[in-house]
C-alpha cells in the first residue's frame, strides 16, 4: 500500500468518524456510536501493534523487507584461513580504501594514531585482524551513550554522531580493534575525490571500527530486493572488501545462520579456532589454523 492510499484511507476515517458524526452532537460533541467507533479504531491499532513482533516496529535497525520476507535473520561471520594467508597486506589496503580510512601521517606526534580496521599482526606468521563482531561484545556493554550497539543482524556498529569520544570501548576491547580519531582526518591532494560515497568519513574525537563492510551488505541486499532474488552465498563469500581482495581466498564471509553457507561449514572445521574465546566474548570471526600456530 503506497503512501497516497494510506493518506486517503486516513482522511476517510477521520471524515467518517469525526466530522460526519459530530453533527448531531451530544453534550460532549460526539455521539455514543462515534465514541464506540473511535474506541474500536484505537483498540484495533493497539492490538495490531501488540500483535506485530516488536522486532518489526522499526526500532530494530537494519531489518530489511527481504530478510523478513524469508523469515530469516542472517548472522554475519567471517573465516580467515591462516594457512592460505601470505601476509601480503592486500586486505588492509582494500579495507582502508573501501572504508575511507585516513592515511597514516609521518612524524613522532602521529605515532600510535594509525587507524586499521583490518590490522595485520605478525606472530611470527601474519594474521589479519578485523573486528571480531562479538556476540557478547564488551565494547557495547561499556558505552555510556549507546554509540556502540548491535544491530538486528548481529553486527557491532558504531554511531559516529552519538560517540562522545570517551574511549571506554577501546579499553574494553580485548582485541584492540577499535580506533580513535586523535585529530581531524586528512586525505592528501586529489585523494579526497576518491572517497567512497557509501561510507561516511569520521570527524576528530570519535571512535571507529570495522563494520564487516555493512554498506556492501546493504547494497547487495537492495540489489536482491530489486531483482526479487535471494542473497547468494557465492557472492557473499567475497562481499567484504578484504575478502574480495585476498589473492589466496583466505578470507571468507557469509551467513553463519545458513548451515549450507561456506562460512558455516568452514567454521565447523577441525582447524577452526576463535581468538580469546576463553573471555566469553563469542567472536564471529573464526581462524583456520593448525593447532597452536597462533599464540596470542
Amino acid at each position: 500500500m503506497n503512501m497516497n492510499k494510506i493518506q486517503e484511507l486516513w482522511v476517510n476515517v477521520v471524515r467518517g468518524w469525526f466530522l460526519k458524526e459530530k453533527a448531531p452532537s451530544s453534550k460532549f460533541g460526539i455521539t455514543r456510536r462515534g465514541a464506540i467507533k473511535i474506541l474500536a479504531f484505537w483498540s484495533g491499532i493497539f492490538a495490531t501493534a501488540m500483535a506485530v513482533p516488536k522486532a518489526s516496529w522499526g526500532f530494530t535497525k537494519n531489518k530489511t523487507a527481504a530478510s523478513l520476507k524469508q523469515g530469516h535473520i542472517p548472522k554475519w561471520g567471517m573465516v580467515i584461513d591462516l594457512e592460505q594467508c601470505t601476509g601480503c597486506g592486500g586486505c588492509v589496503m582494500a579495507c582502508a580504501q573501501e572504508n575511507n580510512i585516513p592515511f597514516a601521517r609521518h612524524g613522532s606526534e602521529y605515532e600510535g594514531t594509525q587507524i586499521l580496521w583490518m590490522n595485520l599482526i605478525n606472530n611470527p606468521d601474519p594474521f589479519p585482524l578485523p573486528c571480531m563482531q562479538c556476540e557478547d561484545p564488551p565494547c557495547v556493554k561499556v558505552c555510556p551513550v549507546g554509540a556502540t550497539s548491535i544491530n538486528g543482524e548481529g553486527l557491532v556498529v558504531q554511531n559516529y554522531g552519538r560517540c562522545i569520544g570517551c574511549r571506554y570501548c577501546m579499553e574494553a576491547c580485548p582485541y584492540s580493534v577499535k580506533f580513535f580519531n586523535w585529530d581531524e582526518p586528512e586525505w592528501p591532494g586529489s585523494l579526497k575525490e576518491l572517497l567512497n560515497p557509501s561510507v561516511s568519513t569520521r570527524p576528530k574525537g570519535v571512535v571507529e571500527k570495522c563494520t564487516f563492510c555493512e554498506q556492501r551488505i546493504r547494497a547487495y541486499r537492495e540489489e536482491c530486493e530489486i531483482s526479487q532474488t535471494t542473497m547468494k552465498d557465492e557472492k557473499l563469500q567475497r562481499l567484504t572488501a578484504c575478502a574480495a581482495t585476498c589473492p589466496t581466498r583466505a578470507i571468507t564471509f557469509g551467513d553463519l545462520n545458513d548451515p549450507e553457507s561456506e562460512v558455516s561449514k568452514l567454521s565447523e572445521s577441525p582447524r577452526a579456532m576463535k581468538l580469546l574465546k576463553e573471555l566469553g566474548t563469542k567472536p564471529k570471526v573464526t581462524y583456520l589454523t593448525k593447532q597452536g600456530s597462533v599464540k596470542p
Binding site: V142, C143, P144, V145, C163, I164, C166, R167
Partner: peptide, 22 residues
C-alpha cells in the same frame, strides 16, 4: 579527556546507559 566534550555533556543526560560503569 573526552574527544567530544560538548556532545558528551549533551548525550549522556539524554541517552546514558545504566549498564555502562560510566
Amino acid at each position: 579527556d573526552l574527544g567530544r566534550p560538548i556532545d558528551g555533556a549533551l548525550f549522556f543526560p539524554q541517552y546514558g546507559e545504566a549498564r555502562s560503569p560510566f
